[in-house]
Amino acid sequence: MKAKAITLNVNGRRHQVTLFPNVTLLEALRDLNYTDVKNGCEKGDCGACAVELNGRIINSCLVLAWQADGARILTNAGLGTMESPHPLQEAFADAGAVQCGYCTSGMIIAAKALLDENPNPSETEIREAISGNLCRCTGYSQIINAVQMTAEKMMQQKAQE
């Protein structure tokens, strides 16, 4: 097994890393301290490791780091910060959508992917969009509220612009 130098573009930052082929994108991201990307099952069952890869949400545990060489990767932490949170992050905090928080980063990335495609989703569409992200604390309702709140807010902002 030979290591190779690859480039991971994460949240707008370029990382040159030399990795073995059997390293998953999840492992690579966490080693680069993107610890908002969580390890919950390593087989695509829970969605805690969800990130955007070239604009599509995926389970980073089921992608090899080499397969992401040169791709655009976006994690929840790339959306906003404590000082300047993304509207989804803000809404999640306000709506009670965050309990233990372990599913939250994956959930927000899934919600963001939905709103990118569909700025005004129905409850059914939201449930579908987050159906690959397990949450054991909330029963999902406040998460759905948060997504709806964000959609409304973002549409209002757009209307004002």
Partner: peptide
């Protein structure tokens, strides 16, 4: 099929 994340891969 499975879930949205899996469907993307």
């Amino acid at each position: 099929f499975a879930n949205p994340l899996i469907r993307n891969r």
